[in-house]
């Protein structure tokens, strides 16, 4: 079975602070992501890409539909999961990498990444080793490993996020603009890392604005518009249509 099965996922927001205005973000999404597959979500801003990702992670609470994740203990409907179980599931089976470093305590990058590994079941030494190699691979200099992460640059923070989200490869990796703040060479290293994960069997659902990144990584591109899936296909087909490039 698919690692991720989304069925008829709907999400609307009711903004009580502006008189109860309703915003419909997702109108019934059906999507599967298999192990070893990289599905890229494309589309203009407001299409619902980030919302979809957040609904899978349940940072946004789906209004209707199901999000089934295949875990080591069997399939789990994220929308129906008890809060405490969701917290555990996230630590164990999900990787979530966004542009932003969540309010982090004064910890060094190595520690942040190692702890993520430990949450996934690694023991301390294993986690430290894996963290060191992940950071090295993403070009974070060793001199920065013990510095409080809050003083790192945007690009450095993003790479730390990526390392933390991908250490001990999770079953499902959710990426929300993971390389937007990186300069070309760091971006390449990051994309390589992500590509390797797919090779290792991780199911990846990613949001990129970067067409090149999508072309490089995605096995399928899902084009979204106004909260619906418009088009699904191989990257070159969908993206060429998007950009109007004839091949």
């Amino acid at each position: 079975m698919s690692v991720l099965s989304i069925r008829d996922l709907r999400k609307h927001f009711v903004l009580h602070n502006v008189g109860g205005r309703r915003v419909d973000a997702l109108h019934g999404i059906d999507l599967d992501v298999e192990a070893g597959e990289h599905v890229a979500l494309a589309g203009s801003s407001g299409a619902g890409k980030s919302t979809l990702l957040k609904c899978v992670y349940r940072t946004d609470l789906p209004t209707a539909g199901t999000v089934i994740v295949d875990t080591d203990d069997g399939p789990v409907d994220v929308t129906a999961l008890a809060d405490a179980d969701l917290v555990t599931l996230r630590g164990r089976a999900f990787g979530y990498v966004s542009q932003f470093l969540r309010a982090e305590p004064r910890r060094g990058a190595l520690e942040i990444v190692a702890r993520a590994g430990q949450a996934r079941g690694m023991d301390r030494d294993e986690a430290l080793d894996a963290a060191a190699s992940a950071l090295g691979r993403l070009g974070i200099d060793e001199s920065l490993w013990d510095v409080y992460a809050s003083v790192l640059s945007g690009g450095e923070k993003q790479r730390v996020n990526l390392a933390a989200g991908t250490i001990s490869p999770p079953r499902l990796l959710l990426l929300d603009e993971p390389v937007s703040a990186l300069d070309p060479s760091n971006r390449d290293a990051a994309l390589d890392l992500i590509a390797d994960l797919t090779d290792q069997g991780v199911a990846v659902l990613g949001v990129f604005h970067d067409l090149d990144a999508m072309r490089r990584l995605a096995s399928r591109v899902v084009l979204m518009r106004d909260g619906r899936i418009d088009r699904v296909g191989p990257p070159d087909v969908v993206l060429d249509e998007l950009t109007g490039v004839a091949r």
């Binding site: 927001f13 957040k54 349940r58 940072t59 946004d60 609470l61 809060d83 969701l86 969540r102």
Partner: peptide, 10 residues
């Protein structure tokens, strides 16, 4: 009542 990041985000 809910998961903290969800309560803050949504």
């Amino acid at each position: 009542q809910g998961v903290t990041d969800q309560l803050l985000e949504d």
